[in-house]
Design a protein around this nucleic acid. Structure first.
Lengths: 184, 184, 184, 184
DNA sequence: TATGAATGAGTCTTCATTCAT
DNA sequence: AATGAATGAAGACTCATTCAT
């Protein structure tokens, strides 16, 4: 059984999300191949990281597309979005951890694109009168990432069932923890 | 002016939160001391990380104590808690991002203690009829960490003002994003 | 031409025997490989020293076997032994000088085995009436090591010819320096 | 209780004889003082080693003087010498270990002086007809060092009683291990 | 294509030494 | 005089990468 590029990336994301200092050797072992073979797949560590970012961005944008977040009621769009993002949450957690910027670094263009679309979704919701206006769209987008990442980590660590992620994230994000604010 | 152990830890946390791969040299420079002196304070990189975890846990527990989270109305207790945790949010972000958990009994016991108290808070809120019962206490505790960390990162990156953290986290956590679910 | 583990060990022994404080870099250079490769062969300095001990013990035991020290006249056995040990004397000198003994069971067991066989040889000689009984077998074994090491150092430093080692050690050990006590 | 320079040197010799790579910290601890104080006694590591050599040479030369090795029957002189050297055997073992020269290094002048006097003693014994001529004076001197060092190590390690050293070294050196070659 | 072996570059750690107290 | 604190220099070790097979 030969692993292809994307299989390797998935393993790498899973490992790097949990341990940012993992070595190429660790990654190779996690993927079940030798270090040298890992280097045949990716020119170097930087290239691997960049490929991870690209794949993560690509999958995430695909999820936004699938969910048609620019269309219809913003609340319904958010529902569709969380559902579509859930299978990508591993990559999303990696991207979110990666994108804590060090002073002077530039924001990844793809990430900025994602950010813009998400922020726009929440802004649209506010304009439609469906989302509170005292919580900024930027913060809501940040919170969406944070909750998706939290959920992904919770699943990794066995504190949360994968099947519950969608409901838990969406309900908390939309309605909060207080009684009477939920779906019901 | 001589930096003591905790001053060094504060600098280390600030740096490592933003860049998990920072070298011992980077950390020493950030703290304004030599690498050798850093090694005099902490036996090695692992020991430094361990000390960071311990200090973070200590500060977090102190915040839970200050907020008297075991007393009174759970919603009010949560308000006090978020306020008390906010100054510690830098440490929290580091600890939460640092998924490479050490095996040390003391540290794990500390995490478990924090977790138990937070989970108990949300459970109490459910029993008091103030918190939704369809979102598990474990998930709510996880979400609290995640949102605090997201907020801390947002502040580091300049996407969020420090003075807004408390309100943003608390309101989202309690009431969610949907209109009509908030404080008002 | 690729050096294998034992080639590296031989070079390391030759160097460390003469200069116990030689660095890993010195040893690597002496063996004609890079430091990194040296570390691939041996997990660290301790592991290298340990391997040296193990090889030295192995070679020494092989010499005792070759010399059949448990058989026949003890004096003749000692003659055969010194002859068989001479090619190993470089290792012996290193091992004997390296007083920082490691705790490893295997190594200690090896030393104890060597010691027991040598001591038994001298005891047998005493019982056969060929060796003096006022010099203890333990001391005679110790002296044999010491004289072999002295001879090896003398050869390294050019004070003694390699071809004379066997005769010098054996004659001194058997007959001492006083006239009339020798072979003749 | 304050240790003076020579007390420190004695501890240093005992430690360095057994472990050539001992650090200044190890030495300071063995002497029961702080590193900084050790540096007050000796300008640096090299100075410490040189002081050790000097003290060892001085004590050894004093022993040769006390034993009047240049006078009378060589066998009797050797007896007196071994007796006089025994209390210094710790230093002698250190010197012997230290003086395994690396290619290109110069022989310590004091050591050369010792060597010359010892070699002369054995040569005189040969000329007097008391020592065998088939064992070179250089080798006999080397063997004397080696046996003294062996005995010192044996005492350190508890394999040999200090009170037996003189007899064991002298009898082996003079008469060898073979029956009928000894004193009796 | 896949991999064990090799290594230059860089990080981690320790050492000998100095200095302020 | 003695020592805890600090550090530049040096040694030990690891990493990402290359290459021969």
């Amino acid at each position: 059984m030969t692993l292809d590029r994307n299989d390797v990336l998935r393993e790498a994301a899973a490992l790097l999300t949990r341990r940012a200092t993992a070595s190429m050797d660790d990654i190779a072992k996690a993927a079940g191949i030798s270090r040298a073979t890992l280097h045949r797949h990716f020119a170097g560590r930087d290239a691997l990281i960049r490929a991870l970012e690209e794949l993560g961005i690509e999958r995430s944008e695909a999820a936004l597309d699938t969910a048609h977040i620019e269309e219809g009621d913003a609340v319904e769009a958010l529902r569709r979005l969380v559902a579509a993002l859930q299978p990508v949450s591993g990559f999303l957690a990696f991207l979110y951890g990666e994108n804590q910027l060090f002073e002077g670094e530039e924001v990844n263009a793809g990430w900025a694109r994602l950010d813009a679309r998400l922020t726009a979704l929440f802004r649209r919701g506010q304009e439609q009168g469906n989302f509170r206006v005292d919580l900024t769209p930027v913060w809501l987008a940040e919170a969406l990432y944070g909750l998706m990442a939290s959920a992904a980590w919770g699943v990794y660590d066995g504190r949360l069932a994968a099947k519950d992620v969608e409901y838990m994230v969406l309900e908390l994000l939309l309605g909060g923890a207080r009684r009477g604010s939920g779906n019901a």
